[in-house]
Design a protein around this nucleic acid. Structure first.
Length: 877
DNA sequence: CCAATATTG
DNA sequence: GGGAACAATATTGGA
């Protein structure tokens, strides 16, 4: 029999330091568990042991150190993050059916020694796996030691038997003990003989074989005089060290090595644990379906190709009476899959030629109740074909997002795994090759059938949970209608001035080239200015400037740092300007030019509806929510976003202080509400209260500090960051916050309450019932918990504001339609909506826009929106 | 693929 | 005793 014995502590440690930051949704660090399991599985695969045993230290003083109190170990404690992973590692091992072994007062290596000795006595072979070189003394007989070492992220495994050890070290493994007794080991707190180092120790062993041999021949001429004195003085220390270095191979361990139970996996427990740890690839490895835990696997579906038009229409007619019609509709609209009972009907565009548009039109004519996944892309495509898609009653991606907005993605295979424990194949119906008649269509058909089957199962579960969590209105009255609005906005796009954009870019280029040259001159040599690493070296080494801050990897060279040292050398302001200009050039000028549609010359962003944890939208390809505005030069870019012609204008309306108004409303703070009701400048009003002066006597500095606190409050303030922000001491900032909270006691109470309810419920929610789970609030880790608390304070505010503008968007769009106006929404930037309007509708549209925004929700601190019109975004703001 | 840096609300 | 502001996306350089 072959037994593998693993030093659990040593391997966990290695894994912990080898893999960076890995946490699951509970906020539990998982890097060590992960690395440990990866190592375990790899070794089991390669070594194929009959039995596996994992040994752990039981912390505190170990047996040997107790005996030698003077040499008490000052072992470095494990970091909290690693300790936190110990229990779950043991649980996983238990679930795996791996024998686990620990004994109070003994280190893992004593257990390894004992088990390997017993195995050896029974004639079994034993592989000891550890990262600790000391354990090499165990090599011999049937015992080999596999040394695991990690260098530069590369893990290597080296197996030693007696021969391999001799070859490398030139003596027998057991003599490692003698060696240590002589030379000591500082990392293990073994003193050895003071003054004897590795060289002398090796020579002594070479000459006399053992420690005892050395002392028996202490007068031998081969021992130099100095060494002899040291050895004589250190004799007791050497003997103690010998004892300390000896792994105890006779531990009173209650483990029958001959009758170890076979490894018996508890699939249910293992599945649950691995799910909790989010180790999906390990779940896969064991082919754990989770069947026994929850839902059954998805049923097999028949697939049927639909190839003639009549058949297609008949199918859709027959589906008209269905309660729900599950459909896979890819963005390219190159194929469609419809589920009817246990049959997945698949239609490929190329089978229908010109009739395909008629089929799509019929499908989306509003007579079928369609359940789709990620419908926005398809809706946008349909709109761009001049259709008016109707009948979408559910989108599983959006539903899953509402149920947990913090997931990293919501593609169908992922949801299928989460909701049905089903593995879905990759499917890319948007890839023309995949839908081509020529190749691989069998597989495509099967895959799409599985997808549509999963869609049905996910729908059933998700729709139910939306109800249970009280998100019906949020889902059906805000998010689902918004899907259509966003698709329309994306399809509409925004007109731009490519020539002016290029001209702007050329202007930047001239200046960038100029700066580059000067910077090279200042630095007395060329380097890559864009590389923070190289820049840091130039500034802080070559030029010897004082480095005020560091990052994990080196010098920090960000704006704050550079501004602080701007006076010290003329290169610094040039770098600051260089940074600003290259940012504008690469991200905005080049980035935007790249995404101008060749079809209509406009820019069509993609609004992501299932990304942010708070409920906000985001914008990608390109991101039109971070077009510069704060600096004059950057703001110039907004002149490039324009109304398409002289007969149109852009109308830009933004909410005034929406987040603070939401805070006032949610917290029901009388004073803050009053300030807003009176239409006061909230930062000035806050200053008047905090400083106890009349409103007229508030200085700009006072207002500015209070503005910073108002912002800070929304983010979950700390005295440290506020101090940094407004440039006072941490103590002053702390007192300032206190005064602020006394001024707005309702706010203070809200901040306290939300943390508590968040902790009790496990989540926080917006006024419209949008949720965000916050397991961090229960974390024992201060940083983690503090983050949870700030998020608990911020999410209801940011999220409610997001809900409100979403409502406004749906209403604005519906109202424009209802009133028969040509104006259309084209952009949203969190608290700002932008319309493209015919000039003759300008006044009407501006009025409509502000009205719908302000009336989107009745708050105690009333919503205020202000609109402005102009030819470009620059002019409209 | 991540870290650093920049841009926005 | 330290830690240390909320939410995003794009570009660049470098392991």
């Amino acid at each position: 029999m072959k037994i593998m014995v693993i030093d659990g502590n040593s391997i966990l440690n290695r894994a912990f330091y080898g893999i960076r930051q890995l946490t699951n949704h509970e906020g539990l660090p998982t890097n060590a568990v992960y690395g440990f399991l990866a190592t375990l599985f790899k070794l089991q695969d390669e070594e194929q042991p009959d039995r596996t045993i994992v040994c752990f230290d039981v912390k505190e003083k170990t047996f040997r150190h107790l005996k030698f109190d003077t040499y008490k170990a000052t072992r470095k404690g494990m970091p909290d993050e690693l300790v936190a992973q110990l229990p779950i590692t043991k649980q996983v091992l238990d679930a795996l059916g791996v024998t686990r072994c620990e004994l109070a007062g003994y280190e893992a290596d004593d257990l390894l020694g004992t088990i390997s000795r017993r195995a050896d006595e029974h004639g079994d072979t034993c592989v000891v796996v550890t990262g600790d070189r000391d354990s090499l003394q165990l090599v011999g007989g049937g015992t080999t030691v596999m040394l695991v070492s990690t260098r530069m992220g590369q893990t290597t495994y080296q197996t030693y038997d007696t021969a391999a050890f001799r070859e490398k070290y030139g003596f027998d493994p057991i003599r490692l003990i003698d060696l240590k007794a002589l030379m000591g080991d500082s990392s293990d707190n073994i003193p050895g003989v003071p003054g004897i180092g590795e060289k002398t120790a090796m020579q002594l062993l070479h000459d006399f074989g053992t420690l005892d041999g050395v002392y028996a021949n202490i007068e031998d001429e081969r021992i130099k005089k100095g060494a002899r004195t040291k050895l004589q003085n250190g004799e007791q220390s050497a003997k103690d060290s010998f004892w300390l270095a000896t792994i105890d191979r006779n531990v009173p361990l209650d483990l029958d090595v001959e009758h170890l139970p076979a490894q018996d996996i508890d699939e249910t427990a293992l599945y649950d644990l691995l799910t909790r740890l989010e180790f999906k690839n390990f779940i896969k490895r064991f082919d754990l379906s989770g069947e026994s835990v929850s839902a059954p696997r998805l049923p097999e579906l028949k697939t049927e190709r639909v190839e003639n038009v009549l058949e297609a229409f008949n199918l859709m007619d027959s589906l008209t009476d269905c309660d729900r019609v599950y459909a896979i509709v890819p963005e390219t609209l190159g194929a469609v899959c419809l589920l009817d009972g246990d049959t997945a009907h698949i239609l490929f565009a190329e089978s229908f030629g010109d009739a395909w548009n008629d089929i799509l039109r019929r499908l989306f004519d509003g007579t079928l109740s369609l359940v789709l996944h990620d419908a926005k892309a398809a809706v946008r495509a349909l709109l761009q074909r001049g259709m008016d898609p109707k009948g979408i009653v559910f989108d599983t991606a959006i539903a899953a997002y509402l149920l947990d907005p913090t997931q990293s993605g919501y593609d169908l295979p992922r949801l299928a795994l989460a909701y049905c424990n089903a593995e879905l194949p990759e499917l890319d119906l948007d890839d023309p090759a995949a839908v081509s008649l020529l190749g691989g269509q069998e597989d495509t058909e099967k895959a799409v059938a599985q997808h549509v089957g999963a869609l049905r199962a996910i729908y059933a579960e998700a729709a139910d949970r939306i109800e249970q969590l009280g998100m019906r209105k949020l889902y059906y009255e805000i998010e689902l209608p918004l899907l259509r609005v966003l698709a329309e906005m994306e399809a509409a796009g925004c007109a731009v001035e490519p020539d002016e954009l290029r001209a702007f870019g050329d202007k930047l280029d001239v200046r960038i080239r100029d700066l580059t040259e000067q910077i090279y001159h200042d630095a007395d040599g060329e380097f890559n200015i864009n590389s923070p690493k190289q820049l840091g070296e130039v500034l802080f080494e070559k030029l010897g400037l004082h480095a005020p801050k560091k990052t994990k990897t080196g010098y920090s060279t960000n704006v704050e740092v550079l501004e602080r040292i701007a006076e010290d050398h003329p290169i610094v302001p040039r770098i600051l300007e260089y940074r600003k200009l290259t940012k504008l050039k690469s991200t905005y000028v080049e980035g935007l030019l790249k995404v101008i549609s060749p079809v209509d010359g406009r820019i069509h962003t993609h609004f992501q509806q299932t990304v942010t944890a708070t409920g906000r939208l985001s914008s990608t390809d390109p991101n039109l929510q971070n077009i510069p505005v704060r600096t004059e030069l950057g703001r110039e870019l907004r002149r490039m976003f324009v109304a398409p012609d002289e007969n149109h204008v852009l109308i830009d309306a933004d909410y005034s202080q929406i987040e603070l108004r939401v805070l006032a409303h949610i917290s029901q703070d009388e004073h803050m509400i009053e300030a807003f009701r009176h239409g006061q400048d909230i930062h000035a009003a806050t200053a008047a209260k905090v400083y106890h002066v009349p409103l007229e006597e508030v200085t700009p500095q006072m207002r500015s500090s209070c503005k910073a606190v108002n912002f800070g409050i929304v983010y979950g303030i700390s005295d440290f960051s506020l101090a940094q922000d407004i440039g006072v001491t941490r103590k002053e900032a702390g007192e300032f916050i206190k005064t602020y909270l006394d001024t707005y006691p309702g706010v203070k109470k809200y901040m306290e309450d939300i943390k508590q309810t968040g902790r009790e419920q496990g989540y926080v929610s917006t006024l419209f019932g949008r949720r965000r789970a916050l397991p961090e609030l229960k974390s024992k880790n201060f940083n983690m918990r503090s983050f949870g608390e700030r998020v608990a304070m911020n999410t209801p505010i940011q999220g409610t504001a997001a809900d409100i503008i979403k409502i406004a968007m749906v209403r604005v769009r519906d109202r424009l339609l209802r009133d028969g106006l040509q104006s259309r929404l084209i952009l949203q930037v969190h608290d700002e909506l932008i319309l493209e309007a015919p000039k003759d509708e300008q006044e009407t549209a501006m009025h409509l826009l502000t009205e719908e925004m302000e009336h989107a929700f009745q708050m105690d601190a009333p919503l205020v929106a202000e609109a402005k019109a102009g030819h470009s975004w620059y002019d409209a703001k």
